[in-house]
Structure formats: C-alpha cells, structure tokens
Design a protein around this nucleic acid. Structure first.
Length: 269
DNA sequence: ATGGTCGCTTGGCGA
C-alpha cells in the first residue's frame, strides 16, 4: 500500500472544518498531523472528524492556543503526550499506526514554539523557550531513536532551514525562524534520530519552497514572501519507502484560509 | 520605519 500523510497547521480546527473536508477530498490521506487546533479536548469536533473517515483520533488541546492532533483512518495505539520545558501546553503527541502495509509506524505531531520577535534568548523569553524546546526534543529523540522502529514526524517546526526555504535569505538572517542559531538547533534535532527531510528529497534544495505566508501581506501570492516552516521527516527505516511529496499551495487561496498550507508525503509500504 | 491580519480567552496575547 501507499500510505499518505499530511501535516498541517490548521490555525483553529473549529473555524476550518470545511477546509479539512476539502483537504481530505482532494488529497485523501490516511493520516493527518495537525497543529494549532486551538481547542480543548472536550470541545474537539470528534464526530465531524470521524464523519470524514478519521475515527482514530489522538488529540492534545489546551484552551485558546497551541493544540496538536493525529487523525487516522487506521488504528492508533499507545497514544502519548510529550511535555517539554515544564509546560503542559499541547505541542507534541505520538502514537503507533497499525496496519499500514503490515508495518507498525511511530507517528509524531509536533508544534515547536514560534519564538517571538527578537532573536535573542537574553532579551526575549519566547526565543529562549524555543531554543530550550529544540534542545529537549533533540535529547529525547537521541535516546528514543536508538531502539525505535520506523518513525515519521510531521510538524510546524517554525524554522526554515534552507536559503530557498525563505523569500530572502539575506533579509531574513536576523528574523526569527531563519536565524543561524535556530537553523543549527534544528539541524541537531534532525540529526538526533537521523531524520531525513522527506519533502526535500523530492523537491530539490535549489528550488524555492514555502508552506506559510503571513496574513498581513495584502496579496500573499503577488508578494510571495513565504517561508517553509512545516516539515515531514522520516527516520532511516523509512527512507527507502519514500514515494512522493507535495505542498498544497492552493489551500492558501481558499476563503478564510490558514496561514499555513498542508504538506503531503507518500510512503510505499 | 511602521503596521499590516487572524483566532482565541472579548480584549490583550500569541502568531
């Protein structure tokens, strides 16, 4: 079988249920990793999501902001919540996907802190939190990755690592999401479990690629000042299974869009 | 250079 996984910062699942339905209709994934669901678990639209075919739901929401989920057509087992930096803030969940080609895949949905405006951990506690979050997740994956089987991670990692992941490398070197210290931290996270950047294994690094465009631009398409903040990574056991990748840019043009678009990867299992 | 827009916890915060 070919397993299709989407990661998407949906920026409120309640506001964008119709968009979720459209993603399901047009892309037909087996698994969705969502970020910024922005809803407590009691108010999560479980029935509506189940009606779309996703009866297996592992959710971790808090009031007002953040919130992550793994939604699946196939069974999910051993659902886990991961908390970092001493906060219970709905940024990381994992579960095992059962039955994909007889394999058992470990899935992670991750929402790394945005980091505020000033890229200085001394002056800006949000930036300090972002760097510390990256350190704690990399330490965990370094240990955990040693004896894990096939793993796939989808998330809003809030870092655009490559020059071609931003509209202007030069102009964004001092802007949070593209500073050298964040890129170095993300590289260490990527190294922690020998992750492969699944999307960039199909869309070459020379090619500009974005997954987020600010709401504040008057015309996002015309300015095209995007950044690639949303990523899908696979570990070594899945590297040979990679079968395709795409970024659903069209979703940014829908009515009342998220500022992020869905990112899709196919795995031949 | 500043402010521009969303969604949430109704109003300031986080992005």
């Amino acid at each position: 079988m070919t397993l299709r996984l989407v990661t998407w910062n949906i920026n409120s699942i309640r506001v964008r249920l119709d968009h979720l339905a459209r993603v399901v209709q047009e892309i037909n994934p087996h698994v969705l990793c969502l970020q910024e669901t922005k809803v407590t678990d009691g108010l999560f639209p479980r029935a509506e999501v189940e009606a779309l075919g996703f009866s297996h739901q592992h959710i971790y929401g808090i009031k007002g902001y953040n919130g992550v989920a793994i939604l699946s057509r196939l069974p999910l087992t051993e659902p886990a919540r991961h908390d970092w930096c001493g906060r219970q803030d709905g940024r990381h969940v994992s579960a095992y996907l059962e039955g994909g080609g007889g394999k058992r895949l470990e899935i992670h949905s991750l929402y790394i802190p945005a980091g505020g405006d000033v890229p200085d951990p001394e002056a800006n506690p949000k930036f300090a939190h972002k760097l510390e979050f990256l350190k704690q997740t990399m330490a965990w994956f370094r240990k955990h990755g040693r004896n894990s089987g096939p793993m796939i991670l989808g998330g809003d990692l809030n870092v655009a690592p490559l020059k071609t992941d931003v509209w202007s490398h030069k102009q964004l070197l001092g802007v949070v999401t593209h500073t050298p210290v964040e890129v170095a931290h993300l590289a260490r996270l990527q190294d922690s479990a020998s992750w492969t950047d699944a999307v960039r294994s199909f869309i070459p690094p020379e090619e500009r690629l974005y997954s987020w465009w600010s709401y504040r631009a008057r015309d996002w398409r015309k300015n095209n000042r995007g950044r690639r903040l949303d990523h899908i990574w696979v570990n070594e056991p899945l590297r040979g299974s990679l079968a395709g990748a795409q970024v659903m840019t069209s979703a940014r043009d829908w009515k009342r869009p998220s500022d992020h678009v869905p990112v899709v990867v196919d795995l031949k299992l």
